[in-house]
Amino acid sequence: MVLTLMINGDPVPYHGDPRRSLLEVLRDDLHLTGAKDVCGEGFCGACIVQIDGVPKVSCLLPVGRLAGAEITTIEGVSNSETLTAVQKAFLEYDVVQCGMCFPGMVLSMTHFMAENPSPTRAELKSAMTGNICRCTGYERIIDALLSLGSNGLGPVEEVRP
């Protein structure tokens, strides 16, 4: 099967089995290793990418269903000069530890904050259940996101593809 994937704004031709997961294609074929292969069953959120702006677990997405969709991976969200507001908050609050969950965390929480610009702590915690982290115990990540909520969320728009 031949199809064209739109990845981070670039057309990428794909020849192969349409049942392969997007995660496998990103990591093994395209060497975009920001999305992490952690649980393989859609639980942990470490492989999250945005499909047409909506966070999805790429380990469960057959690549054959993605023709025409805008796929944004962590590599396409920003560059080191223009971190998103969520990335900046995570940096400023020193919340990163081993780092494996953060690409997915950034992509899902960026979307959540754009949809819910002034969330409560409880809303943030509910939203974060799809992103499991083994190191941090979450609460400092929530603190970082709450700092954005009260300050408004202007810069987050720029991450939308």
């Binding site: 990591r27 093994d28 060497h31 975009l32 290793t33 920001g34 999305a35 992490k36 292969d37 991976t73 962590i74 590599e75 969200v77 920003s78 560059n79 080191s80 971190l83 990335q87 995570f90 940096l91 400023e92 020193d94 990163v96 780092g99 494996m100 953060f102 690409p103 950034v106």
Partner: peptide
Amino acid sequence: MNLPRRDAKDKLLGRTRYTVDES
């Protein structure tokens, strides 16, 4: 001091290459 982590930025950008990312 509360020195920030120098490795956080690349981890947030998905650029850090762990052993599982070696290819």
